[in-house]
């Protein structure tokens, strides 16, 4: 009994799941997503699936629809065609209540943080928790401090307002808030943009440790080549509305597509 429990906990497939398709067992999956915005097709049949425990990166030029795709994957917007599945459930078929239950299982780090500007950093992190669970003040404070230090934010920043933080600290505070409800899945929109190179690498390292030890599945977008090499198990390349490459960093870096060639040749 102990053995099966441990196996299930460590995310190994139990017998019987073999019959299900890859997109149904995946934590996040897009199937033929098409999106039209501002009079053009931003996504024209985007498909991929991220299995449990993987750290995957979406890359692509500015304006290729990475942020829009994350918004669709988190149910903030709907694709015109195609399906989006989270934890095997099709978002289109969910009632608002079921969608909200699903949303408690993942965290989202917005491109610009989206911290509540009238709350302190600690209150920002506490906000999702107090909505879900009644905790006495000392336990809540303990949890909030843990999340802040997991995200690598110095605790003296906890009582400041977001507007009093630097860009990098805001990113970390937003990460702490995204981690608040112990998510199984994390969406990160350009987590290291606007951080200094040292801070960026440290952020990557923090994320890697968190992903490994919390068993997180992570889908992030990035423009940062270092993040790809340091952190990511898998790269999905978006170009002109389609996925043009999908694989490990080494595999993708060898691809022949001219955009990928020039992207990877920016670093020798």
């Amino acid at each position: 009994m102990t053995a099966t429990l441990t196996a299930a906990r460590n995310g190994q497939a139990s017998p019987g799941t073999a019959a299900l398709t890859a997109t149904q067992t995946a934590v996040v999956a897009a199937e033929g997503v098409r999106t039209r915005l501002g009079g053009r097709w931003v996504h024209d049949g985007v498909s991929f699936a991220v299995p449990r425990g993987q750290v995957a990166a979406l890359i692509g030029g500015s304006g290729t629809g990475k942020t829009v795709l994350l918004r669709e994957l988190t149910g903030l917007e709907r694709p015109i065609e195609g399906r989006v599945r989270l934890f095997g459930q099709d978002l289109a078929g969910l009632s608002p209540a079921a969608l909200n239950d699903l949303r408690r299982r993942f965290g989202l780090l917005f491109q610009d943080g989206a911290l509540f500007s009238n709350l302190s950093v600690a209150e920002n992190v506490a906000a999702p928790i107090v909505e879900q669970i009644r905790l006495p003040a000392d336990l809540l404070c303990e949890v909030v401090n843990l999340k802040l230090s997991l995200a690598g934010l110095p605790l003296e920043a906890a009582h400041r307002r977001p507007s009093e933080l630097s860009g990098g600290m805001r990113k970390r505070a937003a990460l702490a808030r995204a981690l608040a409800l112990e998510p199984e899945l994390l969406f990160l929109d350009e987590p290291t943009a606007g951080l200094d190179p040292i801070g960026g690498r440290e952020f990557d390292r923090t994320l890697r440790i968190l992903a490994d030890s919390l068993g997180l599945t992570v889908l992030l977008t990035t423009h940062d080549l270092d993040t790809l090499y340091d952190l990511v198990d898998r790269v999905i390349v978006l170009h002109e509305g389609k996925v043009i490459a999908d694989g490990t960093v080494a595999e993708v870096a060898r691809a022949a597509h001219p955009w990928i060639r020039s992207y990877f040749s920016t670093r020798q």
Partner: peptide, 14 residues
């Protein structure tokens, strides 16, 4: 891994 990470990052309640 989780226990080690938490042990390293744990901070007192302030």
């Amino acid at each position: 891994g989780l226990l080690r990470l938490v042990a390293e990052r744990r901070a007192a309640c302030t």
